[in-house]
Nucleic acid binder design. Structure first.
Lengths: 205, 205
DNA sequence: CCACATACTAAACGCCGTTAATAAAATTGA
DNA sequence: TCAATTTTATTAACGGCGTTTAGTATGTGG
């Protein structure tokens, strides 16, 4: 039955074409610039065709985000391999997180800054689901924090609390720098570096 | 010439009505729920009338932001009066900032989480202007940090750097808790308390 | 050859921000 | 007082949006 397979391959090709078109618009100009109609025009299909491959616009963009966050997770896991000191892992990891967000602002906005009203309940549960790249990345962060505590390099605190606090602060750096990009910030490097180092220094035993 | 004045008063009244209607929609259902048409219907005028009082939707948005900043600033200044210790001011101030954001999520979203694409260049320069409430609030924060350093209660660091870092982290707490309200966070109180205290402890001399 | 599933589309619905043209009302000046 | 003028508000429209419905080709399996 080679026919069915060819058909499925062709479907997959079109699905990728849609994603490619959307990714390009999205990376260049952000969420609002990705309109189903524009994507359709780019791939020379009618707008309704997209709905045969994605439930709706947020489904399409969710797929793009997962793609991106897979990269982030991979990046994070690489660091863990190349270092034995969990504190160092944490420092580099948080720094990378912030840099990653700042260099992929549109993806970051959709994943971490989009108003919950914009997402369907289904999308929300997908973001929170244990299989989502975001959740996996968080769990990885928590494990590293736990390791720091276990090795007595950090005070004896709840790893969940510490990991969440670190995430919140790092998110603040990314998101506010993205949104208020016209504010007269001091140099980014100092801002990122000081924020992370200051938080970690407070945690050290 | 009392006539001119009465006219201006009447204009001001309608302007306030528009702001009230917009604010209510904002507070109840968020940014997307504020459409020029809905606001118009609420005040029983035609949609185009709004354009006689505000340049466009982002101008309307800006006005609501200023309002919010003003409340924050006022709140912050009150704290300063009731305490002599700048470190305590800072701790209470940051805590209030976070609480303010969490109890007025839609206001906070409009002021600090709205996409810059939504704002015109004019609005952006208005935000940065030294007269804007946001700038004033930030300068107030920076002054308190400077005072902590001056009194040798903090390490000798750039007050600008420290103030911005504290703002970024606090913003992270507010904004991520708002957006990811379905994430399994530990209790809010612990999260807020630990984040602030940890940052401040790292700064102490 | 026909019934059927698949892939796709045209047209429409009901929103949206915004603009142009115009009407209505208030104010002014003669 | 009454016409001219300015101010205020409206109607209708433009071009966009996400999405749904109903329908058309096209190629497959019996």
């Amino acid at each position: 039955m080679g026919i069915k397979e060819r058909r499925e391959r062709q479907k997959e090709v079109l699905r990728e074409e849609i994603l490619d078109a959307a990714r390009e618009l999205f990376a260049k100009e952000g969420y609002d610039s990705v309109s189903m109609r524009k994507v359709a025009e780019k791939i020379e299909y009618s707008p309704t065709t997209i709905y045969l491959y994605f439930k709706d616009k947020s489904d399409l963009l969710f797929s793009l985000c997962e793609e991106t966050f897979e990269k982030l997770l991979h990046n994070f896991e690489e660091i863990t391999k190349h270092s034995t000191d969990p504190v160092e892992c944490l420092e580099i990891g948080l720094c990378n997180y912030i840099r990653f967000g700042l260099t992929h602002p549109n993806h970051y906005k959709v994943a971490f800054m989009s108003r919950p009203e914009d997402l369907s309940l289904e999308d929300i549960s997908r973001f929170i689901s244990p299989d989502s790249m975001g959740t996996k990345a968080y769990l990885h962060l928590r494990d590293i924090v736990a390791e720091c505590i276990k090795q007595k390099k950090f005070k004896e605190l709840d790893p969940e609390l510490v990991a969440q606090s670190l995430w919140l602060a790092s998110h603040g750096v990314v998101s506010l720098l993205i949104v208020k990009c016209h504010f007269p910030w001091v140099e980014r490097e100092r801002l990122i570096d000081h924020t992370i180092k200051n938080m970690l220094s407070g945690l050290k035993a």
